[in-house]
C-alpha cells in the first residue's frame, strides 16, 4: 500500500502543479517547488541562528557588565572576564549546526 503510494507521489506532485497552473494563481514546476523549499530552509536556518545570536547577546549584556565591573576593581580579571563574557557565544555556534543540517 505504502509502496504504491510512494511510487504514485511524483505523479501526484505533477497533478498538483498542473492543478495550480490551471488555477492560474502561481505557475510552479517541480523545480520551482524545490527552490522554494530550499528558500524556506535557508530562512528557517537564518531565523534559528539569528534568535540564538540575540539570546547570546542578551546573556552577554549582563555578564559583560559584571566583567567590566570586576576588571575595574582588579586588572587581573581581564582574561577570566573576557572568557566568561564570550561563553554564551557557544549558543550561536551550536545554532550554526542547524545551517549545515538544513543546507
Amino acid at each position: 500500500m505504502t509502496e504504491i503510494a510512494l511510487t504514485e507521489l511524483p505523479a501526484f506532485v505533477e497533478t498538483a502543479s498542473i492543478a495550480l497552473q490551471n488555477n492560474g494563481s502561481a505557475a510552479m514546476g517541480p523545480e520551482a517547488a524545490q527552490n522554494m523549499a530550499d528558500g524556506y530552509g535557508a530562512a528557517a536556518a537564518g531565523i534559528a541562528v539569528g534568535l540564538a545570536a540575540l539570546a547570546a547577546g542578551y546573556a552577554e549584556r549582563g555578564i559583560g557588565a559584571a566583567a567590566v565591573g570586576a576588571i575595574a576593581e582588579d586588572d587581573d580579571m581581564f582574561v577570566p572576564g573576557l572568557i566568561m563574557t564570550v561563553l554564551p557565544e557557544t549558543l550561536v555556534i551550536l545554532a550554526l549546526v542547524v545551517v549545515f543540517i538544513l543546507g
Binding site: A65, A67, G69, A70, E73, D74
Partner: peptide, 13 residues
C-alpha cells in the same frame, strides 16, 4: 537598572 555591574564591583570591594 544595572545590578550586574554594581554587584561585581561591590563584591570585589
Amino acid at each position: 537598572s544595572n545590578p550586574e555591574y554594581v554587584n561585581a564591583r561591590v563584591r570585589s570591594r
